[in-house]
């Protein structure tokens, strides 16, 4: 009996507030826009019993998805989100790996402090960290002032409201997510393996390439997915730093819902975004599973 209650309460909570809402999104993505409250049809009328259900199902169609497929805007938004998420994941890895690697080389007594310095931004408001770049990247921002003062450039660079600003924002906010799993993987690495590789004639660089990188692969994969998955549906960064030029699907969904008030299209956008995310999510889960098995 007690065991039943223990399972029942969180189960029902998640079913009611995660699963059901998600099914509603799928249902509304198959509905039509209507000038009514709520602004879509058909509405399910359970009072009519079986006939009502059949009539309801008959009215659902894939019209919104055909609309998405035919309109250039959505294709471009999905592709540009994929491109932005991929490039920023690679950039984050290029910046994050050396940081994680150097942290494991630091003296033992320094490591907890370094680790704390990586974790601290994670507890700080995401919104504020994105916002902090607005004063730096703007036309009259600090970066332009500095570069002009140093005579590196003769007129201000336009960084704010371009994809470049979005890359900077994503790398900046997600860097700790990538550094932590790589640090964890590198920290466990047995130094004797590197010594053995060097004794057997490897150069230090070759030993790094043939030993360190493969042995930290789990951390690299986990870190990359932790950047890529949230970056793909990102809303805050493109809307604060990207301006109107940068097309990302999270922003399109938001505008479809709040500005155009087209709920069925917004829901269809959400369903497709999720379908795109399923592959990376499954790969990520599999990587985590493998890691747990190799540890356990």
């Amino acid at each position: 009996m007690k065991r039943f209650t223990l399972i029942f309460i969180p189960y029902i909570w998640l079913a009611a507030l995660f699963l059901v809402p998600f099914l509603i999104v799928v249902k509304i993505s198959l509905s039509d826009t209507a000038l009514a409250i709520p602004p879509y049809k058909p509405a399910l009328d359970l009072a009519q019993g079986w006939a009502g259900l059949m009539a309801f199902l008959g009215d659902l169609d894939f019209e919104n998805f055909t609309f998405l497929a035919e309109d250039d805007l959505y294709w471009k938004a999905y592709l540009s989100s994929l491109k932005i998420a991929t490039i920023s994941t690679i950039l984050t890895l290029l910046i994050g790996y050396p940081i994680a690697y150097s942290m494991t080389r630091a003296a033992e007594e320094w490591r907890p402090t370094l680790l704390m310095l990586i974790i601290l931004p994670f507890w700080t408001s995401f919104l504020i960290r994105v916002y902090s770049w607005m004063g730096i990247l703007g036309q009259e921002g600090l970066l332009n002032q500095l570069l002009l003062w140093l005579h590196v450039i003769s007129e201000p660079l336009k960084i704010m409201n371009t994809p470049t600003a979005v890359y900077i924002g994503i790398v900046y906010t997600y860097l700790p997510f990538l550094v932590l799993p790589i640090y964890a993987a590198l920290d466990k690495l047995d130094d004797n393996l590197l010594e053995a590789a060097e004794d057997l004639g490897c150069s230090r660089f070759k030993a790094f390439w043939l030993v360190t990188i493969p042995l930290s692969m789990n951390g690299i994969v986990a870190g990359c997915f932790l950047v890529f998955i949230p970056a793909l549906g990102e809303f805050v960064i493109p809307s604060l730093l990207g301006g109107s030029q940068t097309l990302m699907i999270g922003k399109v969904l938001w505008e479809e819902f709040f500005s155009n008030r087209d709920w069925p299209v917004a829901s269809a956008v959400a369903v497709i975004l999720l379908l795109i995310l399923i592959i990376p999510i499954i790969l990520f889960q599999r990587n985590q599973q493998k890691q747990r098995e190799s540890e356990g």
Partner: peptide, 20 residues
């Protein structure tokens, strides 16, 4: 249902709860 919300884009979680 425990793991999915961790990777669900926030815009989708928000939208689906609002519709509910």
């Amino acid at each position: 249902m425990i793991y999915a919300p961790l990777v669900m884009p926030e815009v989708i979680t928000g939208l689906s709860l609002l519709l509910l």
